[in-house]
């Protein structure tokens, strides 16, 4: 197991190097120059040179990239150029907020999606299936932004229920957390439900058509036992794949729109601000973390495959 993990990590190196390299070229090398922002009014030549040296701008391209890889390997990204906060502390503060914000919606969106898909697939071509799938296409066709604005008006403004806050965030007590997380969660569930239901229905319909299901039906197995014991269990591989591979993007960019709309200080908002202001230490850390997360997800997914399907071999 340990040997397998190490081998997989090694195989993930090209991906990590690729992601960090492309991001480095785009975000750091061509990104905004912070020199004059930090220099203040009427800087002298020496002051400018000093700031450029502090920021590492004066070093050659490959030296800067190699430094980045070393920073990533030692998890030492230094301090934010904008606020001076330690980058690891900044991430430790903002990632939990993003997770608390997106996780409930992500879990509910997948669970409800699977349940609707089971229902639609089992009652295939009946009115139940047709209404669920119509709902799914409608859900797929509404923009996330429209959902967010619409839900905000409906739940948080005087033109609607006016029960939840317009913007902001707090997790001090469970009550406050629920107060702030409800509307974003509803929006996330709604926007993901259409795509999820369609995807899972296709998987389940295919599984339902197999011979062993027909046999189980012939033996008089109940709908419940067929769906939960046979179909769902055998559909786990594509389900795991979909859920696992959306995790890295849910953590980083999935929350960006919600965070900037509701003014929530999560990692998506912090990273977006870092791009627009050229806060390189923060950018390097987030991009590096995403790449590593992808490789970890790749490994965990393989292990999960093995757990759900003993025929899969780890090699």
């Amino acid at each position: 197991m340990l040997q397998y993990t190490l081998k997989k990590l090694l195989a993930g190196l090209p991906l990590i190097l690729g992601v960090t390299f492309i991001s480095f070229v785009l975000m750091v090398y061509f990104g905004p120059d912070k020199t004059y922002e930090l220099a203040g009014k009427n800087p002298t030549e020496e002051q400018i040179a000093q700031i450029r040296a502090d920021l590492g701008y004066d070093q050659p391209f490959f030296k800067r990239y190699t430094n980045y890889v070393i920073e990533l390997a030692t998890l030492n990204f230094g301090h934010s150029d904008s606020t001076g906060e330690r980058v690891t502390r900044l991430l430790g503060r903002t990632i939990p907020i993003s997770l608390a914000l997106t996780l409930p919606g992500f879990v509910l969106g997948n669970v409800i999606g699977i349940l609707l898909a089971l229902l639609a697939a089992y009652y295939r071509s009946t009115w139940i299936d047709k209404s669920i799938m119509t709902f799914a296409v409608v859900g797929m066709s509404v923009s996330f932004l429209i959902i967010i604005i619409g839900f905000q008006v409906m739940f948080s403004s005087a033109y609607g229920l006016n029960m939840f806050p317009v913007r902001g965030w707090s997790m001090d007590t469970l009550g406050e957390y629920l107060y702030y997380v409800t509307v974003p969660t509803l929006a996330i569930v709604f926007v993901s439900l259409g795509y999820n239901t369609r995807f899972y229905r296709a998987v389940i319909v295919e599984e339902l058509g197999k011979d062993h299901i027909r046999t189980a039906r012939a033996y008089g197995a109940s709908a419940r036992s067929i769906l939960l014991k046979r179909v769902l269990k055998n559909s786990m591989i594509p389900i795991i794949t979909r859920i696992m591979f959306s995790i890295p993007l849910v953590v980083i960019s999935g929350s960006l729109l919600i965070e900037s709309y509701f003014g929530i200080p999560g990692v998506g908002k912090v990273t977006y601000d870092a791009i627009t202001t050229g806060d390189q230490p923060v950018l390097k850390a987030v991009v590096g973390a995403t790449a590593v997360l992808f490789v970890v997800v790749l490994i965990v997914t393989d292990v999960l495959y093995r757990l759900f399907d003993p025929r899969v071999e780890l090699k």
Binding site: L15, G18, V19, I22, S23, L26, M27, F30, G31, P32, P248, L249, I252, S253, L256, L257, G268, T271, Y272, I275, T276, G278, V286, V287, T290, A291, F294
Partner: peptide, 20 residues
């Protein structure tokens, strides 16, 4: 290349390209 591009968060990628 495909794996790499798929692993960069989309909105961050667009923001970075816009600035580049």
């Amino acid at each position: 290349l495909m794996g790499t591009l798929d692993s960069i968060p989309f909105y961050l990628f667009v923001a970075a390209v816009a600035f580049a």
